[in-house]
């Protein structure tokens, strides 16, 4: 993946994710984690390479079909990416847009089933009482739960989580990752999650890939990380990295 300004953000990245897996992506800031996740649902167009989704090459899918692929892939963002001035319910409902006819948007209309589904999604993430609050009235942790509820509305087969807890304090981080883990185990949703802290990786991920300067420099199970030597660790996190958390 090369950005228009010539930055090579990803190079020779090749990996596979099995259905129902919880895959962690680690790497320094700027190593290409966000770019990688965004290439998967083609929020960024990879300049070369292929993306295979359920055995189908989606790299050059036209917009119309891309829509049906994207609606099966939920996404959770570091900055939550909620519409701050809209209600929580509207934000959650917007997760359903991939399934609703576009012209309904002109009337701001969602079906009754969708509304009920949104309430259930909010119940699942534990904030049904906030449905009619404005999104920016919620705390950070609550906003991220709304983000997860929005992804849930997609009835996703996979969730891409781009540093979902980087803007939250550690207690909240566990709570949010707990929801993702629950979705992973209960609904068998594949989760691709980029994370900063190794202890979080060890606690939640089944498998990890490490990026550095756009290249995969590590791939292994969470046990491999626990066993990883400091030299190996430096390969991923750079020369001046200090191990934090983890051990």
């Amino acid at each position: 993946m090369v950005y228009p300004d010539g930055t090579v953000a990803l190079r020779d990245v090749s990996f596979e994710v099995k259905d129902g897996e919880f895959l962690g992506v680690i790497g320094l800031s700027g190593s290409g984690k966000s770019t990688l996740l965004r290439c998967i649902n083609r929020l960024l167009e990879p300049t070369s390479g292929r993306i295979i989704w359920n055995g189908k090459d989606i790299t050059h899918l036209p917009q119309g079909e891309l829509r049906t692929v994207r609606r099966e892939i939920g996404m959770v963002f570091q900055q939550f990416n909620l519409v701050k001035r809209s209600s929580v319910l509207t934000n959650v409902l917007s997760g359903r847009l991939g399934y609703t006819p576009p012209s309904w948007a002109l009337a701001n209309r969602f079906s009754r089933q969708d509304r009920q589904m949104a309430v259930r999604a909010l119940e699942r993430v534990g904030i049904p009482e906030k449905a009619h609050n404005r999104a920016d009235e919620l705390s950070g942790g609550q906003q991220q739960r709304v983000g997860i509820a929005r992804a849930l509305m997609q009835e996703p087969k996979m969730i891409l989580a781009d540093e979902p807890v980087a803007s939250l304090d550690p207690v909240l981080a566990h709570s949010i990752l707990g929801y993702l883990e629950k979705l992973n185990t209960e609904d068998n949703i594949t989760v691709l999650c980029s994370l900063h802290y190794l202890d979080l990786v060890q606690r939640y991920c089944e498998r990890v890939i490490g990026l550095r300067d756009g290249k995969v420099v590590f791939e292994g199970s969470k046990d491999d990380i626990a066993k990883m030597s400091d030299e190996r660790f430096r390969e991923i996190y750079g020369e001046d990295a200090v191990r934090m958390g983890g051990q």
């Binding site: 929020l43 829509r67 994207r70 917007s94 991939g98």
Partner: peptide, 23 residues
Amino acid sequence: GPLEALDAVGANRLQSIVYAVVP
């Protein structure tokens, strides 16, 4: 951010405008 989120959800352009831009 919200625009990106709606793209990821599979919303089309009109929907993105109504739900992410207009508010």
